[in-house]
Write a protein that binds this DNA or RNA. Structure first.
Lengths: 210, 210
DNA sequence: CTTTCTATGTAACATAAGATACGTTAGCAA
DNA sequence: TTGCTAACGTATCTTATGTTACATAGAAAG
């Protein structure tokens, strides 16, 4: 497991902490599209992302969804952390966007480590900081941008996260993430295709320039 | 100053920490409508709110504003904290909603205390937790609610924060907070008045039942 | 090859919200 | 009193987005 921890976390954690992580963390392999957490779930461990990507969503009472942000290697789910520390239920839904590898840290350990390891404390604060930033970004997007701009931003993020300019997805999927209807997305995508910015095929969108 | 700290914070901080706060914190009295922080400001101290209330806003490049949430006694500005710890510029604008009293803690001290005081660490984590919650709430509001529902929620919050069912405000002010136009707010308020839920006068709105 | 899905294209219409314009009113000041 | 200004009321129009309905196309299954 040692090799797995190294690439992303070795540089920020001290040796002793890395040893502790190696002893207590559990490696979890998650196939694409697996739901990791639903709203209302109790969470007893916190994930460190080693590879892949995780999509974090908000869901309202009517089942309407909205993409909040993606988590990538080196990230942790601050929401989950927050729920662990506050001993409250999950406020978000998390789905594996790609095949993903996680290190699961038990709550009890993470509480211990905040007292004993400065590097861990910094990591936790840093994670909160990043999550607040991302949430502000999300707020900006839905408050200040029109749907066509949001769609562009969304496509860009998907390309960045997947590392591929051809996205395997459907219009309906996008509509769910942006909390709108399929027809609206089809309409806007068609416009982008006319502008030669993307190419549309069944189950795939190729981004040429955005 | 001892009496000032007591009511809101005495129960959560240990004696030694309270003493330290008393020695290093600076009491600041802020009149209503004063801008405390603008986006891009560097912040070198973190506020603990003793009395009053603070309105936290997001502003975009066009100068469009959006109310994120209100801070009340016992709260701290997690955004500011986050910026302090990350040594980054402020991402938000903060305005005194009422006459407000703050204790200002220097960054350097707050970093020290996270290492030495468990109660401080818990307070910091708790604050992050609450702010994430509030931001999720904000996201829900703008993503899933229509303007009329957002207006109702807004009026309720103002009543709660001010402790008065009569709000001294203008339609334009509300429009700024909700990032819409005055005309839209006037229209919706009129509808609420017709439904006998509120009473409108120049510069004042009295909430009867929501 | 036909059938059966699911994904996509597109028209036609409905609605919430934004924009513009202008009239009215309350309160203050000269 | 008169006049001025900020706040408010309201009609009209535009636009972005949502809704419904239906046609077509591609993939998969039989």
């Amino acid at each position: 497991m040692d090799q797995l921890i190294h690439p992303t976390y070795a540089s920020i954690f001290e040796k002793k902490l890395l040893d502790e992580i190696e002893q207590t963390a559990v490696l979890k392999k998650i196939p694409q599209d697996t739901t990791l957490i639903e709203i209302g779930d109790y969470v007893k461990s916190m994930p460190l992302i080693l590879s892949g990507a995780i999509k974090v969503l908000r869901v309202d009472d009517n089942g309407d969804e909205l993409l909040l942000y993606f988590l990538e290697p080196g990230d942790t789910c601050a929401m989950t952390m927050s729920c662990c520390l506050g001993h409250t239920k999950s406020e978000i839904k998390a789905v594996a966007e790609l095949d993903t590898e996680l290190l699961m840290i038990p709550v009890q350990k993470m509480e211990e480590w905040t007292a004993t390891y400065k590097s861990w404390r910094n990591f936790v604060f840093h994670s909160y900081h990043n999550r607040l930033q991302e949430l502000l970004n999300t707020v900006d997007t839905i408050a200040f941008l029109n749907m066509d701009e949001r769609l562009l931003k969304y496509l860009n993020e998907k390309v960045k996260v997947s590392g591929d300019t051809t996205l395997q997805t459907t219009h309906q999927e996008i509509a769910y993430d942006l909390n709108t209807s399929r027809v609206v997305i089809s309409r806007l995508l068609k416009k982008l295709e006319t502008m030669k910015k993307i190419e549309l095929k069944r189950n795939s969108i190729t981004i040429r320039s955005l």
